[in-house]
Amino acid sequence: MPDRNFHDMPSRGEEPGTRRGTEPEGGAERDRGAERRRRRAQFLRDLAEARELRDRVQPRRVKVARLRHAMRMRTFRW
């Protein structure tokens, strides 16, 4: 009988050829997550910039929206 280490044995649900702690796609998965977060941050920056531009171009709409929000907050019940 060959001498085998307990940690080399596959656990339930694992393929017999895989080992614990080694993920072949782990690095790629992290890279995709980082890329997604970077694109999301860029999108949110662009969105904020577009809102600021709209607020400067249409000040009346901004004032009305601010007054509406204040009214909603005054009538809101906890």
Rank of each mutant, 00 (worst) to 15 (best):
M1D: 15
M1L: 13
P2Q: 09
D3Q: 11
D3M: 09
D3F: 13
D3Y: 10
H7S: 15
D8A: 11
D8H: 10
D8V: 08
M9E: 10
M9K: 14
M9N: 13
P10F: 03
P10M: 02
S11Y: 12
R12I: 15
R12F: 14
R12K: 12
G13L: 12
E14K: 12
E14P: 12
E15D: 15
G17H: 14
R20A: 10
R20L: 06
E23F: 04
E23D: 07
E25S: 15
E25K: 12
E25M: 10
E25W: 14
G26Y: 06
G26D: 05
G27P: 00
G27W: 03
A28E: 14
A28N: 15
A28V: 13
A28Q: 13
R30S: 03
R30P: 01
R30A: 05
R30K: 05
D31H: 03
R32I: 06
R32C: 04
R32E: 09
G33E: 13
G33L: 09
R36N: 01
R36C: 01
R37Y: 06
R37K: 09
R37A: 07
R38D: 08
R40E: 10
F43C: 01
F43V: 02
L44Q: 11
L44R: 11
D46P: 00
A48M: 04
A48N: 06
R51T: 06
E52H: 03
E52Y: 03
L53Y: 13
D55W: 03
D55Y: 04
V57L: 15
V57M: 10
V57Y: 06
Q58M: 07
P59G: 00
R60F: 04
R61F: 00
V62C: 01
V62I: 02
K63S: 04
V64M: 00
A65I: 05
A65E: 08
L67R: 04
R68W: 01
R68E: 02
H69F: 08
H69V: 05
A70V: 07
M73K: 14
M73Y: 11
M73W: 14
R74K: 09
R74G: 02
R74I: 02
F76M: 14
F76W: 13
W78L: 15
W78Y: 14
